[in-house]
Design a protein around this nucleic acid. Structure first.
Lengths: 347, 347
DNA sequence: CCAAGGGATTGGAACGATCAAGGAGCCAGC
DNA sequence: GCTGGCTCCTTGATCGTTCCAATCCCTTGG
């Protein structure tokens, strides 16, 4: 049999033992070995013991391809990685990815990465789906107007989205998202508690639903505290440069004592302006960012920042996937998680 | 056949068409369709055309599991992700991962992520290998004393390492690495060119071969330029705090006019100390980091930093993998790539 | 006109697992 | 003693593809 081929230096590795090899060794049939692996309850304890010994001795692991073929499932979850782009929120995804991999592993799944193509947002999905190469997808780039979610729904492909279907209020697919408004509200309340009342907002252009969501949190917190907001809000591109310029304008025209920003990138811009003007962040002016990126953590005095619970997001996504794939009761259609505030020297 | 099942709202997705379905439609045998996909040269042009039409019309993609089973290959490359840890060089891996996925895709491979476990560094590899779930591995954490590389070599498993086998000079597996010494030499020469002669080094503890490699580049450049180095080198933990302290000590005792650091993290520490002492980076004191992290890019004046050619690393790794897997002539055993210097305001 | 040769195509047999039935063997009950 | 039910295990068929060897068809040369 395959497991008894000659072996020695310079040889190609022997093919791993099969179910039949183990069966022969344990003196049982193939199916019994299969049951020992998948339905141990069906075996008599002594038989189970014997088969397990054989499995251990031979170092048997079920062949993935054969199992996949027969069961029509791959135990793989597909995740598309965006085309390489510089310095965006990608780095943040790192935390998410780690937990996703870990949690998936616990559920018996692996994560398959595949390349994305902006011109053909659906191509990669299509191929993997038709080849039954993955059991489900995790869709993370829902903010791009997500044709994927709609397309996958239409194909009746199992998937869970990280991000609400902003522009498709009637979408029925499961999703997990972070409550951005709650995050900025947290940040604003924190500043109010510190005694600030003129708290400025620097966010993204109006066509970003995520940006508007985050802005809403700031606005609500300010209104509730009875603080004015006119002239204190600015909407710009998500770059350090834009953040710096916006901060300069706001400082000149509205004299805020604190800034809440839609991203750490913008917050870095604010800090840049403060630095130029010899204003000490945290002492003269408070600044809060969003994302708790590495930048926020290593910035000299530390940048207070809203931290997305990406680990929880990953866990919830895997839970939803398990439901979809039939291992658990159906999940809530949408799960909204609340971020926390990482308080540092800048506030 | 499976492709003609009833379809409509509320139904479970129909199973995708198979080779046999396409064959029937095109009026040829299964094998001919298979050849149309894998060895088009074997078909007569008109037959090929007819089969291709059928494939397109039915939206056929070969079933991955079946193909994998028959060919004993999975077209998957395994990459272990370390257990989630905070704020380390992980974020840098993002660039690498993207390119790895893209390049692998061009070579017909997908990337499979699997969870790592520090207690059992080999467990994940072992399972995937025996289950023939992946064709090869990319090993990235070779600096941990890499038991993986040795173990995989012993198993005769195909893999390529990102990182030289520092502690195993006789290892024979293929690897790709970045020439850290060349990077720090680049940084040091850049500073020398700017007129600096008292250039300090802040690096890692002596037991890090990577750290010593980077230090060697600084040392060589200084010697070649005839500049003294005594009292100008410091070896500390890789934290902002340590970098700040080391910079303070060096400034007090040796009055350097520039710093070369083994990491951006350390460089941030230096910048912190400069900020406290009201010294302007780039004007009063020059600073160069290593890794060109996001931090370096968004830091107000910009942090000059050695940039690892991670994209090239990924490309070379995929190339080496293709060789291992028999599609190309055997590769060089080791590939050493030279980093570049991203010059910004801090120097 | 037939045999030889080569290109194009075909049918059967794997690959290694699970599914769906189908036996043994044993005990209780009539 | 035979049946029925239960537990435990086995046998054949199957998933969809590619490998292998055989077959078919058409051309060419003797």
């Amino acid at each position: 049999m395959s497991s008894t081929e000659p072996r020695g230096p310079g040889f190609i590795p022997v093919s791993p033992p099969t179910l039949a090899d183990v069966a022969e060794r344990a003196g049982v049939s193939r199916q019994t070995v299969s049951n020992a692996v998948n339905n141990p309850d069906l075996l008599r304890p002594d038989t189970l013991e014997r088969v397990r010994e054989a499995i251990d001795e031979m170092g048997y692991s079920p062949n993935r391809a054969a199992r996949n073929l027969r069961t029509r499932s791959s135990q793989l979850i597909g995740l598309r990685v965006q085309p390489a782009q510089e310095g965006t929120a990608n780095a943040m995804m790192d935390r998410f990815l780690h937990t996703l991999v870990d949690t998936s592993a616990e559920a018996g799944y692996h994560v398959l990465l595949f390349a994305g193509d902006n011109d053909d947002p659906v191509g990669g999905y299509d191929h993997l789906l038709r080849a039954t190469a993955v059991d489900a997808f995790v869709v993370t780039d829902t903010y791009l107007g997500n044709p994927q979610a709609a397309w996958l729904s239409e194909q009746r492909a199992p998937f869970v989205a990280f991000g609400r279907p902003w522009d498709q209020p009637h979408a029925t697919h499961p999703w997990v998202d972070v409550d951005g408004a709650a995050g900025t509200r947290l940040a604003t309340d924190h500043l109010i508690e510190k005694g600030h009342s003129r708290i400025a907002w620097i966010g993204w252009r109006k066509d970003s639903p995520i940006g508007e969501d985050r802005r809403a949190g700031w606005l609500a917190a300010m209104h509730e505290a009875g603080h004015p907001t006119t002239g204190l809000a600015s909407r710009v591109e998500d770059t350090v440069q834009s953040g710096a310029e916006a901060a300069a304008v706001l400082l000149d025209e509205s004299a805020p004592t604190a800034f809440v920003c839609a991203s750490d990138t913008l917050a870095m811009g604010v800090l840049h302006t403060l630095w130029i003007r010899q204003l000490a962040p945290g002492r003269d002016i408070a600044v809060v960012g969003f994302d708790d990126s590495q930048v926020a953590q290593v910035f000299p005095v530390g940048l207070t920042s809203v931290r997305q619970p990406l680990e929880d997001v990953a866990v919830q996504i895997v839970r939803a996937l398990e439901s979809l794939l039939g291992h658990l009761p159906p999940p809530a259609q949408g799960v909204l998680l609340t971020p926390t505030l990482a308080v540092r020297g800048s506030s």
